[in-house]
Design a protein around this nucleic acid. Structure first.
Lengths: 200, 200
DNA sequence: TCCTTTCCAGACCGTTCGGTCTGTTTGTAG
DNA sequence: CTACAAACAGACCGAACGGTCTGGAAAGGA
């Protein structure tokens, strides 16, 4: 093999992700990516058969990283043996990392979901995989915490409550955009943590 | 005055809103809007000086409608004299109208916020106005309900808890997109309602 | 009636888009 | 050293983009 194609491919993905998160997919031209990356069309269409193929690769990589931070949160909470403490430690992990989340100005999922054209079999399968990953892991934590803590009033279904975390994170991304500040992410994650804690 | 220009303008806004909510702003061309509306470029650029001016008009109209549904929710809850019942009635109003919210497949705010280029003085001022409108009205309901219902544990700030409603709605819009179903909107609003109710 | 102003249709323009193609460089295997 | 395939650079293409311009139709005031 000649020059290291993997490095160029990664660079193109890095630059593309930044630009797409800032301006959306349709508003980000291939030429902008190339100019920013200091690359050329030859390189781009060598690594990606089309702009849509770039979107597929972009989402696949993003989902992998996203499920990675989920795993990191689970790992951070794994020290706690008490189910309630474990759930709260899990949530605290993301509250603490809120500023790191919003350093990248927005979430790629939003850019993909906002354009129906981009929601083909490939992208929607990837996003669905991410959502289900979060749902199942968080719902399991919820169930254990609930079982350890009887309650007189009815509680939400753990799956729906787990989805609420995903929903709050995505919504908070949008509010950060509107506010022009990363602060709402932390505030909203903290509110979610407090609301969940009130069920325990 | 010649033919009724207002009707054409409204039609263009209606069609544009539908297409932008479906595919985003950048991916929606002026010609697509015209073809869908059965109109022409002459008409379009007579009513809007540029595509950006269309975005401004679109957001302005959407914010007005959005604050209208907020007012409708407040009106629906105004019958209750007890602050707690009033807050819950307010939230129930939106749970009940969840399917109506997601009939329009997505929220225009998302399409605007996802493209940084679109966030100029005009659009960001409109969106901020909407967010503050919801925050202040909902936070007021929260404060009254909290005051009527003492609590031993610390509660979230009413403003942050009010923002959480906006955040959940926007996030739920995205989840509806990912799921290809309007169902998550209702489920997530219900979860939010249950979480708030657990504080009372 | 006629004139004016608004409203609209559609041809047209320069630019930019995603994508193709040709040619050259670069690492590696034999 | 040679051959070959992967990796890239950049000119080029047709289509589509946002926007302009000219001409004509429709309504109201004089």
């Amino acid at each position: 093999m000649p020059r290291d194609g993997g490095a160029t491919r990664d660079l193109l993905l890095d630059v593309a992700e930044r630009l797409v998160e800032r301006n959306g997919f349709a508003a980000t031209s291939v030429e902008m990516i190339l100019s920013e990356a200091g690359s050329s069309k030859g390189a781009f269409f060598h690594h990606f058969s089309s702009k849509r193929a770039l979107a597929h690769a972009l989402v696949e990589r993003y989902v992998a990283a996203d499920l990675g931070t989920l795993a990191a949160g689970l790992e951070a909470a794994s020290g706690e043996s008490d189910p309630v403490a474990k759930l709260l430690a899990f949530l605290d992990y993301f509250v603490g990392r809120a500023s790191a989340l919003t350093s990248e100005s927005a979430c790629l999922y939003i850019a993909v979901l906002v354009e129906q054209d981009l929601l083909d079999d490939v992208t929607s399968a990837h996003v669905e995989r991410a959502i289900i990953g979060w749902r199942e892991a968080v719902a399991a934590l919820m169930r254990e915490a609930f079982a350890a803590m009887p309650w007189d009033r009815p509680r939400p279904e753990p799956e729906d409550l787990a989805d609420q975390l995903f929903v709050v994170i995505e919504g908070a991304f949008l509010m950060c955009r509107a506010a022009g500040s990363p602060e709402p992410m932390r505030a909203q994650l903290l509110v979610y943590r407090q609301l969940v804690a009130a069920l325990l």
